[in-house]
Amino acid sequence: MKILALDTSNQAMSVAVMVDGQVLAEMTLNRKKTHSEQLLPTIDHLLQLSALTPEALDRVVVADGPGSYTGLRIAVTTAKTLADTLQLELVGISSLATLAAGALRTKDIIVPLMDARRQNVFAGMYQWLDGALINVAADRHVALEQLLAELALLKQPVTFIGGDVAKFRDAIKARLGAQAHFVDAVSALPQAGRLALLGQQAAPVPPATFVPRYLRLTEAETNWLKTHDDKGHAPYVEKV
């Protein structure tokens, strides 16, 4: 199976080409440059290096959230359009699972984490079981303080992973002490090769209805729902 995997859910961008379980090419960029400008040229470059054309692919695997809203939309739109236009299989994998897959050789609970501002984070809980990465608590938008309180109750070792972990390291240590473990800066970046591995067994989804998992309503919708009932207002988008 020939897989293209892509993740632009945060500042780092990672793209990989995997054929029959082997990574042929992988590139991770961690410069602050717009994903819009660099994603497709990188895909093109890596496919060329792999001696493949886009139509030769079987499957596109994309990190579909949570993450930066604009970033998610770049990879998800690229993935769903590519899959739709060339009739390839499409698979969405949690961008938190993608990060968690970078924490190897640990029995700890793995907590991938992204800054969601105002002391909130996007986070999930994962664990390796017989070589498979298991999601033990769903990805969600949560106050950092609440997440740390829940983890303290578990009384199990926890490995934190993700580019934003450094920002919260002091707060995490203060709350969890020796229970908290951290990975190095290289493992903290998403690696699309791992994303491809996670996505090679997953069931494909239809591209037309595929959207990012934002895990948060927009602020406008949240405020509107405080005083309105959602019923009777749909459809919000109509073909005219």
Partner: peptide, 17 residues
């Protein structure tokens, strides 16, 4: 932000139509 989200929902459907 709401507009951007709707565009993602619609885009491939519009291409095919």
């Amino acid at each position: 932000e709401v507009a951007s989200r709707h565009h993602v929902e619609q885009i491939t459907d519009c291409i095919n139509l």
